[in-house]
Amino acid sequence: MHFDAFDRYHEKDSRLHRLDPRVKAVITIACILSNALLPDGAWIAFLFAFIFLLALNVVSRLGIAYTLKRSLIALPFALIAFSVLFSTPGNPLSMFHFLMWDFTITDAGLLRFVSILIRSWLSVQMAILLVAVTRFPDLVHALAHLRVPPILTTIIAFLYRYLFVLTDEVFRLLRARESRSAASAAQRSGGGVLWRAKVAGDMAGQLFLRSYERSDRIYNAMLSRGYAGHMYTLNPHEMKPGDYFAAAFAVAFIFIIQILGRF
């Protein structure tokens, strides 16, 4: 498999790409929290948050609709909130009958449902943008600066580094199973569901052993290159005046959105 199959970073030369990763992480989280704080039906505030997002898209040179396109994959999850359409007390808008139940959609329920979706959708796009303009190792480094415990950031860094390697291993296992599971029109391949589950479990066990042994080799290789419990980076993050300016600008904008959301 290609090494960047999981990577979400898009190399471009933009102001947003060059911004300090700490600033980007903090702005993203602040925007998500700000969206969460907006009351239901704060349409003007939602609109401004959306405009802010589009502006960031443009600044990042990824194209104005970049995050929009990416965010559509996340939409099916919206079904979880579907039930608020009926459960929120309010004026009935429409009624329908399904199996043995009557459902009534209320105006308050509709308002709440749409607001939940918009808040979630705006926030998902901020998160998509963050990983599109920040290299993942830089992001992990930023998290370490933001006081996430080093043991966690190190595990995440390793996870990211070996994701590709172990996924390749899984594909080899799946291919091996596939190539030994010949079937014809007359005869089904393999045994019953339990047998198939057992094969899958053996594959997981096999993957565990291969990963375990690989971790030994990796540790020895790291020791031989001078690992002493710390990771070093070649680009130390330093806040420049532009970074402070961008952070201040974003905070001011979020403040305005919050005030707009209350009127």
Partner: peptide, 26 residues
């Protein structure tokens, strides 16, 4: 010890990769 940190990192990658292993039900 410090030895376990790479081990835990690889184990996290293992869990992530193992979530892709599946078996057909019906």
């Amino acid at each position: 010890g410090e030895r376990q940190i790479p081990l835990m990192g690889i184990m996290a990658a293992f869990i992530f990769a193992a979530q892709m292993i599946n078996f057909p039900v019906a």
